[in-house]
Simulated scan of single mutants.
Amino acid sequence: MGTGTQHPDMMGSHPEMTEMRDRLERTASSGPAVVLEGLILLTGLYAAISPWVVHFAGQPFITVNNLIVGITVGLIGLGLALAPERMFRLAWMLVPLGIWLFISPWVVTATHSARAGIVWNNCWVGAVTALLGLAAMGMTIGRSHKGQRR
């Protein structure tokens, strides 16, 4: 048991926190990051409208699944564009969302026999989503390691 009092504001004044915020801000405002944010937003929008594009909107479970996951991915992309210094830490969420999109045709469809169009669509969109999430995470990790080598 410690006898000292802990102050919640002490972490905010830590010198490494300022450096980390500056690094994230530099990363988030770079050209590749802006392109990545746009691609994440577009991927989310496509995932949300894909049931109508690929014509499987008649299957309610997978349609609702793609709509919810697509809107979530799109909101993460929008958040990255509007407040990148805060949202870059949430980029890791894109990886499990992409994996879920990839496997959802087999998990969500009631008959467990999803049509080829649904499977191909979700496999591609899921893979792209997961790769974009890995790229966003890699940008912050890469910046951190480059800064330490100097």
Rank of each mutant, 00 (worst) to 15 (best):
S30V: 05
R86S: 10
H7R: 14
V128E: 00
Q59W: 14
R26E: 08
G142T: 03
L90H: 08
A28Y: 13
R149Q: 11
L24P: 00
T72H: 06
P15F: 13
G4L: 15
A83R: 12
V119W: 04
A33P: 04
G138Y: 12
L101V: 02
G70E: 06
E19H: 11
L75A: 11
S29N: 14
L75Y: 08
S13E: 13
A91Y: 01
H7L: 12
A110C: 03
F102Q: 00
I40M: 04
V54A: 14
A110M: 09
P8K: 14
Q6E: 10
T140G: 06
D9I: 15
G12T: 08
F102D: 00
G126L: 02
A33H: 05
W52F: 12
S13D: 09
M87I: 06
S144N: 08
F88D: 00
L82Q: 06
R89K: 11
I118M: 11
I40K: 00
E37M: 13
E19D: 05
R89C: 04
A47G: 02
G77Q: 02
S13I: 06
G31P: 04
I49N: 05
G133R: 09
I103A: 14
L101Q: 05
L78D: 02
P105I: 09
V53M: 12
M10V: 12
R149D: 04
E25F: 15
L82T: 04
A114Q: 02
L45D: 01
V69P: 01
E16I: 10
T72K: 06
G4D: 08
G147P: 05
A127S: 12
H112Q: 10
M87L: 06
L82W: 15
A83Y: 14
E37I: 08
L97D: 00
E19G: 04
W52L: 12
M1H: 11
G77T: 01
Q148A: 15
L131M: 12
C123M: 14
V34C: 06
M10E: 07
N66Y: 05
A33S: 07
R115F: 09
K146P: 02
E37L: 07
L42W: 10
I76A: 01
H112C: 01
P105D: 03
T129D: 06
D9Q: 14
K146T: 10
P8V: 12
W124M: 11
V108C: 05
A81K: 04
R115I: 09
T140C: 07
I141K: 07
T111G: 05
Q59P: 00
L131P: 02
M20L: 14
R149I: 13
G2N: 13
